[in-house]
Write a protein that binds this DNA or RNA. Structure first.
Lengths: 117, 117
DNA sequence: CCCATAGTTCAGGACTTCGGAACTGAAGAC
DNA sequence: GTCTTCAGTTCCGAAGTCCTGAACTATGGG
């Protein structure tokens, strides 16, 4: 497939990460990828709680997360594997991701429920 | 003046905080308030680096920060004192604010430079 | 009382995001 | 090899959000 652009983590400004995760849907997606051992298919995340997310929105969300350096996407056959780049982000911005995920988890919001394994 | 609404910190969802701080201008304002000993007047922050922020935008930014539970505003005479509620937020979402501020600082972005005073 | 200062509100335009429909690319059926 | 199906992307219009200048309100001083 065309070479999906993944920015080096040093080029990602903090506000891009905050923006990406300031959307509860994206936060839920990311928490799910991060919690589920760094691999998921897109369609597996088509629902956050009760709410069904349209495919197109989902695609956009993944694009935002990808461009924020939070995930790495590669095509495996017909579906997409999404690896969390959480270790890289952690190295670049120590404590940021864990604090955010913890914040969502402690708020009882749907943002990180699926990360609770 | 009318009783400016300050939400209790427990009522503030994490995404509101992330959203508030995902704007570099607001991040700079907040970093400045937090770094400068928790008191500032609005007009003292009318410029982020080279960029001049219009009063109306500034007012909106303060409102967003206030409604995200990040600052507490009270009128003293003709001007406004803005206290950082950073301790409360820290208690509610441990490590979140410090990680964000540190991220902005380490990125060399203008988000937290003014906190170095 | 009138003026100056600090901040808020409103309205119009620019920008972003959402979501359905159509499209592309890969795997399996025939 | 070709057709069908599945997974995801792109396109475009609708809806919402954000920015900002202009007008307004509130406070303090002369």
């Amino acid at each position: 497939m065309r070479p999906l652009f993944h920015p080096p983590i040093e080029d990602v400004p903090p506000n891009a990460i905050l923006h990406a995760l300031s959307d509860p849907n994206r936060a839920a997606i990311f928490a799910s990828i991060m919690g589920a051992g760094c691999v998921e298919a897109c369609s597996a995340l088509a629902a956050v709680g009760d709410r069904v997310i349209p495919k197109s929105s989902l695609s956009t969300h993944f694009k935002v997360l990808r461009e924020a350096g939070l995930i790495r996407c590669e095509r495996h056959g017909v579906e997409m594997r999404n690896h969390s780049r959480h270790a890289e982000v952690e190295a670049r911005y120590p404590g940021l991701l864990s604090a955010i995920v913890r914040a969502y988890a402690s708020s009882g919001c749907e943002g990180a429920t699926s990360a609770g394994s």
